[in-house]
Design a protein around this nucleic acid. Structure first.
Lengths: 410, 410
DNA sequence: CCTGATTTGGTGGACTCTCGGACATATTCA
DNA sequence: TGAATATGTCCGAGAGTCCACCAAATCAGG
């Protein structure tokens, strides 16, 4: 590898055979992955982690150093035993920059994110839900302009996340009840041309999952589900080596799986969707029906506080809600043996007691052979979940999730 | 590549980085895959299919010819246009032999299968469901001995399929209500040592899916679900590039996802599992309750016949049953955008009218954005589904499903 | 203060692949 | 008979990893 960084071809993108040069990019990605997941390490340490010769790793690393992606820190004060002191490698500041655009009900957030999860620039704009398509696109592009302008040409890609059923390969939003203006939007293409960077469209819940994997509690973990529990419900499921995806890469719609054939009608047109009993809308409607706490104007936070204070009505309502949530979560256990859940959304404000309750109900609704070791956590990414997720989507696409070839020798 | 077939190393199995030689095995596998999926083809045709230089493909093919896996047919009578006539390549008879052992409720089937889906040897034995573990293993090994003895040393692997929740990586049967003697069985190891071949343990429904992909109606299709509808229900879902699998490769248990929180108790201990209303047990019990046709002794075939003859009771019962089945199937549509279903099991005897009914109900229960183009087929593999599936499991593991590296250049 | 054990990082040659272009071959069409 | 077209092969270049050494830095012990 010369110092002049020859423009690397990307044959594999065409879907053809693997070639020797693809091996290079795949392995470079593996190294960066390890660095992301398990933190800085010396060359020798990295070589052990990814199970490769030190020599090989050395050549990979020198390439990345020259490219300015990694930096070499000073030798550390020597850990234990003898030997030449290791020189840890870590990501350079502002390495692997990616743009993040997270559209949600009522707001657009925009940011630039680097490989360490640092956000050197960010912004948040209000977005009226009644916005038409053209108006919405104008606002989003304007917001992006403000944040991305200073980084033009340095973004490896832009992650655009939306609360919708979409086809990430084609970059098409198929159906979106939360922000109607998004349906059929041309934003992916518009962002790509405006900032000359590849754009990855992704569903919000799936982005949460990817974000948790690189920057949150999913770090170093191969499999877990990220749940969004708010006015809608959904899940992004991370399995060993990849994100769960449907045909053509379609995003999953756990919220609209049927859990009660005679249930209430859902906004999607079907009957008995999990969302009808698991969203915070149900919680509010039910509070009103039962005459609990704030009625329709209540919130998970208020209910949690009242339950903690001993309010029997609030406590009963939350117990029922936990059970409702547990139905869909347990279905993931049965279907995919997922045992680790990271919950996002308004519901995390219901408090620790609710988390324990939820955990208990999920265990109770899971097959005995799979119920051991189930964990339910509330996300700690908080405000940044959406943006980090959007950025991680880009990162994940660059780095791939190395597909361990399962072939035997032939 | 010399004629002496040097023993190829299998580094990638260790989980390390990819190396150039891994590229070789992956590409060889790709070629064989294309041959399996799309039938015989000339070198040039293959090169176009897998998107590679003719020269490269030539070297790959000569290796496979020398190894006796492929054979070169005579030049075909010339299709269209000018040019040197192509010489099609196809699998040699008895190429890529694998052993198949399918244990089901009441029977063990054993066979040897080649790459074309031909079964040069097969056998079927009765297997009492009350069998203890030791007795069961003895019977299965004996059956295998009879069929595999003549092929010792020529089997690339043995596929063992069971109606159970299992961990294919570890080769462990975790939970099995249909054939209790299987739980915790040592059969995988026993078969491996006895016949000196790697053994792949797999859940029956997932094997159905793989079998359909290589040898049945799933041929050339990237995504579909194979359903088993019998005294139990389940599904194996094939997605682009891989079979749906849970954490650690655990098999999926669609039959035990909850579709009615207040439903009947299931054999697994939970409540409202899909299986409680979708298995033919429900059909029989409900027939008895309603006093339809043969009551508890009825069958899908008899019900279908009576419905076709105009029996209103049979017709109503089948309609309800179709709707019950549709709930779980539509959940797969919502969750994974699966649109193509291949149904196995006793229910296929209910007839064409029932198939149409089922299709209609699945469409009705699917999200509008995903309901287009849904198809429901009855499997045509029939008697061979189990054995071909078991064999295809081995094949699939050898050939992998080439993981198209999604990385961009780095 | 020197020596050996130990660990880190670098170098050069061998090996395994695919790629790209040039070349021989076989068949059809004018 | 000759041009056009398509198939199959040969050979050198390029990319990457592996392996076996070698140099550098640190620590323990005499």
């Amino acid at each position: 590898m010369t110092a002049s960084q020859p423009p690397r071809r990307t044959r594999s993108a065409a879907g053809g055979l693997l070639s020797s040069s693809d091996v290079g990019t795949a392995n470079r990605a593996r190294v960066l992955q390890s660095l992301l997941e398990s933190g800085p390490a010396s060359r020798a340490e990295l070589a052990r982690r990814v199970n490769v010769q030190r020599a090989t790793l050395s050549t990979i690393v020198t390439g990345l150093l020259q490219a300015g992606v990694l930096v070499e820190e000073d030798a550390r004060p020597h850990a234990g035993g003898a030997g030449k002191p290791a020189r840890p490698l870590s990501f350079a500041p502002e390495a692997l920059l990616s743009g993040a655009v997270a559209v949600s009900r009522g707001a657009v957030e925009t940011a630039v994110v680097d490989a360490r999860g640092v956000l050197p620039a960010r912004h948040r704009d209000h977005l009226p839900t009644t916005c038409g398509r053209a108006e919405l696109e104008r606002r989003v592009l304007e917001a992006a302009e403000g944040v991305f302008a200073a980084y033009r040409g340095r973004l490896r890609g832009i992650g655009l996340t939306v609360p919708a059923l979409c086809d990430p390969e084609a970059g098409v939003v198929l159906s979106c009840t939360a922000v109607p203006g998004l349906e059929g939007t041309a934003l992916p293409r518009a962002l790509a041309t405006r900032f000359d960077a590849p754009v990855r469209l992704e569903q919000d819940v799936r982005a949460f999952a990817i974000g948790e994997k690189w920057f949150g509690q999913g770090r170093g973990r191969t499999d877990f589900a990220a749940l969004q529990v708010d006015v809608g419900v959904g899940a992004g499921v991370m399995l060993p080596g990849h994100l769960l995806e449907g045909v053509r890469g379609y995003t999953t719609q756990l919220g609209h799986t049927c859990i009660d054939p005679d249930g209430a009608r859902c906004s999607c047109g079907l009957r008995g969707c999990w969302e009808t009993v698991a969203s915070t809308r149900w919680l509010r409607a039910e509070a009103a029906r039962r005459g609990v706490v704030g009625g329709r104007g209540t919130s998970p936070r208020r209910l949690g506080a009242r339950a903690a204070a001993g309010d029997a009505g609030a406590r009963a309502l939350l117990a029922d809600y936990a059970d409702n949530l547990a139905i869909g979560m347990a279905n993931l256990v049965q279907l995919l043996s997922v045992r680790f859940f990271i919950v996002h959304g308004d519901v995390v404000h219901a408090g620790e007691d609710f988390r324990r309750l939820l955990h208990e109900r999920v265990v109770a609704r899971s097959m005995p052979a799979l119920a051991d070791g189930i964990e339910v956590l509330f996300s700690e990414l908080d405000q940044d979940a959406g943006l980090l997720g959007a950025a991680a989507t880009v990162l994940s696409h660059h780095l791939g999730d190395t597909p361990a070839p399962a072939h035997d020798h032939l």
